[in-house]
Design a protein around this nucleic acid. Structure first.
Lengths: 344, 344
DNA sequence: CTGAAAGCGCTAACAC
DNA sequence: GTGTTAGCGCTTTCAG
């Protein structure tokens, strides 16, 4: 097949028998074009297989796109990593004629989150949000979407909402992965396994727990799961809870920590002097969990790459705004498994 | 600090008291500019912190950059994946005003490889090559670099050569990772572990073996390593070798396969009826190793993402050609660990 | 050795 | 409703 140079706006205009400006109006859904003309333009676009040239678009665009990145307030390390990534992305975003601002909201309050999202209406072109799945939040997202704001959910999805993408991992699979690692590391001996999570109300935590229990029951039935402990993702709360667990269970074989608060868990483990005898698998690579892995306190860390997630979310948001193509492969977030040997 | 709009070529030209064209000449190292003028331009660039706008550059460029991707000939699945990725990248490359062509060369012959690389002189702007580390090859790479061709090594590095980047994983760390997985999966019982590699002459294989032996000796001394078997990365050769190994070692506890030929290894394992009793860790996720993982024949697959590697190699090559900035984080290839539960 | 000028494909202001 | 036109920041002839 001959390599035909790609069609330009000009070609489309000529084929449709209209001017550049009209084609532009149609392509951007601006009003003030007769229905018949709109159709003719669409037909020409179709027929020529027109795709806008992103380089030209960026060069010509005056106004830069505004992104809001809404993250949970608090001092969670992983969330800190995410917001750092936004800073790191600034120069790249500027080149794409875009700018992002991080906003913190109390994620445990659906009302606040929903209100905050509603306030973004018309203020920004796209919002990237780490949300919790709640009817109020869902409605706020649908509202934004209805008014033409692009919404991308991050880390924890709101599946039924009209967000244009979800960027994150399959948390059920992540839980299954944790179970396989824990089960195989512990080996064939009998024993009990503790579980620490932030809250059952968090969708990602619930999904991980589900996957974990599934594989444990099916493939490691000689291990008994203890009732999950809920520590609100905060070390001050997880530490005493885990300390007590260790006291109650002098032969604890393993520990799965589903959410944050790992600093507290590690401290309790260390204080008990049994860090080496309890196999510990947790999530998210932070300075603390990295240290724990290297020290042999943690045995495996299951991770989602914060940098990859933020880049992906921004790329997808911008692509949705401009109709640019994406490479789906590049946007798939992997479930990383880190041992002390393959740390980045 | 005030947000000063970035400096453009125009600003540089004005500051240096010359024209656009002259600045362009200096920036692209073209001849025909007085030394004093060159200096003045450089000073202006420095002083204004000028960075070219990639969008404008791509838009204006007539000629598109030519990339050659040189891969080993043969039917290795992983290499197949890499060359597929080049196809997948074509539309994106076209948008960047670039085009890539895959070329196959017998990688086990340094003479052929070196000759092939020499032939690329002046034919292409950049070459991405999966090379083997040999003085002839190193010289060929240095030669290309000396004549202004950008060279990126892929998967297996040629460290002392003047390539502009290496895209791939730390293979020593990958070998260590394999050892930890194998050691912990097998557990505290004594046993013997077989090793299959393509050839000791391949740099990446040798590095993996090194890392593997290191961790095995230090952390799993109750496991005895058998002498490595070399199967040239081909299933027809690995299958009988592994079959014989299994016959010789009726209690084999584990198997580490460092390179390709996994189809043959899996077949031998299955034929012996002992797949479930031998813990098997291998490299590179291909349709075959994925199947083996799901069937419980393989226990873990250590992977480098072919798509990520090829995208990265092309991005880095283009960035080197155009002086564009890269996000180093985005170009770091991870050592992926896949279990049956976290397959993509 | 150096400069002027014509675009690349698109957006956006303004005119009809 | 629709068309014209002036750039965006760079590359690349073609003249001096």
């Amino acid at each position: 097949m001959e390599h035909s140079p790609r069609a330009s706006l000009h070609d489309v205009a000529r084929a449709a028998g209209v001017s550049l400006a009209t084609v532009d109006r149609v392509l951007h859904g601006r009003a003030g074009v007769r229905a018949r003309t709109v159709e003719r333009v669409h037909a020409a676009v179709e027929q020529l297989g027109y795709r806008p040239d992103p380089a030209a678009t960026r060069l010509a665009r005056k106004r830069s796109a505004r992104l809001a990145v809404v993250l949970p307030a608090g001092t969670n390390s992983f969330v800190g990593l995410l917001s750092q990534q936004v800073q790191a992305l600034a120069p790249w975003l500027a080149e794409q004629r875009a700018a992002a601002a991080v906003q913190s909201v109390d994620v445990f309050s659906p009302v606040d989150l929903a209100q905050h999202l509603a306030g973004l209406q018309g203020q920004v072109d796209a919002v990237v949000v780490m949300a919790l799945d709640h009817p109020l939040v869902r409605a706020a997202i649908d509202d934004l979407a209805a008014h033409g704001t692009v919404v991308v959910t991050l880390v924890s999805d709101v599946p039924t909402a009209r967000r244009s993408h979800f960027v994150g991992i399959d948390n059920v699979a992540a839980g299954r992965t944790a179970a396989t690692l824990l089960g195989r590391f512990i080996g064939p001996r009998e024993g009990r396994v503790g579980i620490v999570m932030g809250s059952r109300a968090l969708r990602d935590h619930a999904e991980r727990l589900f996957g974990f229990e599934q594989v444990m029951a099916a493939e490691h039935p000689h291990l008994t799961l203890l009732a999950p402990i809920e520590g609100q993702d905060r070390s001050e709360r997880t530490e005493p809870l885990v300390a007590e667990l260790l006291r109650r269970e002098p032969d604890l074989a393993g520990l799965y920590s589903i959410g944050a608060g790992n600093r507290g868990i590690g401290a309790a483990l260390a204080a008990s002097g049994r860090a080496r005898h309890v196999t510990w698998v947790c999530h998210e690579l932070t300075p603390y969990t990295r240290r724990a892995l290297l020290d042999g306190v943690a045995d495996a860390v299951i991770n989602q790459d914060a940098g990859h997630e933020m880049r992906s979310a921004c790329r997808l948001a911008l692509a949705a705004l401009s109709g640019e193509r994406v490479l789906p492969d590049q946007e798939r977030i992997r479930i990383d498994v880190f041992l002390k040997d393959n740390l980045p």
